[in-house]
């Protein structure tokens, strides 16, 4: 199962790859990383239809914001699930994300147990 993480912090990649080391090693999941909204849309647009099942995106990013990216993905690739990961867990961001079709909303610092559960659930349903 291919998952795309979108965050402008490059160290996110090392962190998530290490956190999901076992799942990646076992071939359960495959991770890709994009460092901007535009970057993410390029990666998703490489294949038609894209193999990605799930996108996790930060909200506060330079250029296209995570919420804009969410709307764009939901329009172009309605089958891909999108969840938001943000340091700003205020109700305004939450409400906008949910009404734009986000599957979940995670606050930073990320609760990896919850994230792992969410991904495991998704893998099971594949």
């Amino acid at each position: 199962m291919k998952i795309l993480f979108v965050d402008d912090e490059k160290d996110v990649e090392a962190l998530f790859r290490q956190k999901f080391r076992k799942e990646i090693k076992s071939g359960e999941i495959e991770l890709a990383f994009a460092f901007s909204g535009k970057d993410a849309l390029n990666i998703l647009g490489e294949e038609n239809p894209p193999k990605f099942v799930y996108v996790f995106s930060d909200i506060n990013m330079p250029g296209m914001s995570g919420l804009e990216l969410l709307e764009e993905i939901k329009t172009r690739f309605p089958n891909i699930q999108v969840s938001m990961i943000s340091a700003y867990g205020d109700s305004e961001n939450y409400d906008r994300a949910m009404s734009s079709g986000a599957k979940g909303f995670f606050t930073k610092p990320v609760d990896f147990e919850r994230l792992k559960k969410e991904i495991a659930e998704m893998v099971k349903n594949q």
């Binding site: 700003y88 610092p109 990320v110």
Partner: peptide
């Protein structure tokens, strides 16, 4: 606080890992 929180999350996460 927000700007500190992000690098701090990395410090905490990577040390835990």
């Amino acid at each position: 606080a927000h700007e500190i929180k992000n690098p701090l999350n990395f410090v905490n996460n990577f040390s835990e890992l």
